[in-house]
Design a binder for these strands. Structure first.
Length: 152
DNA sequence: GCCAACGTTGGC
DNA sequence: GCCAACGTTGGC
């Protein structure tokens, strides 16, 4: 069992959208490092904190669960999609995605500022300057601290 | 909307 | 395989 941070632009796909949809394919990831995490490390049943970037406030808004293993991201083949990748082949898809399900939305988001200032969260990836990775591993300790202690 | 920090591309 | 140019991300 591993823990992750999934990043989304708040006004692009938010925790409320996930709550409404109940489940969604986490498509549009076009970064090799993030893809490799999804392809190689994320397992069905893993939990993730759902992070909104470019939001007010920027931070963690809830929890999602991974409900599939990695499979081809269909948006890479759709020329009308913003994430279309004309160099990717159906027979050898370049980009992967996983399916995620809504678990819960926090009553109050845990802001990036709080995360940065809490000594319990020392070393968390999202605290690093210029942390642009949209799929990040999170330690069990950090995950539980955020979900259990910071949302009371 | 700015801009610094990143990741990717492509010429050599 | 280097590295400058370019495009993108994301906090502010």
């Amino acid at each position: 069992m591993q823990y992750w941070l999934l990043k989304s632009e708040g006004d692009c796909y938010s925790i409320d959208d996930l709550k409404r949809d109940k489940q969604t394919a986490w498509t549009g990831v076009r970064n090799y490092q993030a893809r490799n995490f999804m392809r190689d490390s994320i397992k069905k049943g893993d939990l993730a904190i759902f992070y909104h970037s470019s939001s007010k406030p920027t931070g963690v808004y809830g929890v999602a669960k991974i409900v599939s293993t990695a499979h081809a991201d269909e948006t890479q083949f759709d020329c009308k999609d913003a994430h279309y990748d004309p160099t990717s082949k159906k027979t050898d898809p370049r980009w992967m995605c996983v399916d995620i399900a809504f678990v819960k939305k926090f009553t109050e988001p845990v802001s990036l500022e709080e995360i940065k200032h809490d000594p319990h969260l020392e070393g968390m990836m999202v605290r690093a300057q210029g942390s642009r990775l949209s799929v990040q591993p999170v330690s069990e300790k950090h995950f539980n601290y955020i979900v259990e202690e910071m949302t009371k």
